[in-house]
Design a protein around this nucleic acid. Sequence first.
DNA 1: GCGACAG
DNA 2: ATCTTGTCGC
Length: 226
Amino acid sequence: MKNKILFNLPKNIKEGINIQNNLSHKVRLFPLKKDPENVLAIDCSYDKKEGITFVVGVKWSYSERKPIEIIHTSIKTSFPYITGLLSFRELPPIIRLLEKVNKIDLLLIDGQGILHPRGIGLASHVGILYDRPSIGVAKSRLTGDIKHFDPRSKGFIGDIYLHNKRSGFLYVNKENTKPLYISPGHLIDVNSIERILPRFFKDHRLPEPLFIADKVSKKIKNEKNT
DNA sequence: GCGACAG
DNA sequence: ATCTTGTCGC
């Protein structure tokens, strides 16, 4: 698929922040009308020495709970990691990856959705560029206030508030693992995510398609392929 | 000034 | 994310 909104790398931090502030107004959160079928999980890894970013996409069948296809590509790393500006580092490879797929109903992305200083984390940014529903699955906290936290339970173990609004939740699928920070990216809301997210998990901390993407991404990087 | 800080 | 050894838990 092709991005419907032009993407340009900012020349500095201030410009990047301006881009996010402008695009953040396009984020739309509402119930997912229909269950997704073709889901694409995306994860990146880096070869620090070579300055290359590898990205893998796992096309996943929501109904059958199994991978359909695995795609990947790589690109020269063109933006540094700056807290809050992760999108500008990972969007170039992700855009290249998405040119290789079609008919995606939902995007599962390794990173934050609206739980971001300007309300537009990587998952939201990708969703807006492609006008597709997206969910942010982060492995650690960027921002947001955690409430109703119950470390003893499994599954939904707490809510995450941003600007006094419930914007995401903590989720634990595997015992003795740190919780995931889940939030809507675009064209979906927290309640819809609570309804469909459990179906993506198998026996790992991460949703299965993201677990596979992460594994394959590191594997490809260590083989120095493309 | 201090603490926090996706990948 | 990446680097990096042994080690605790399933």
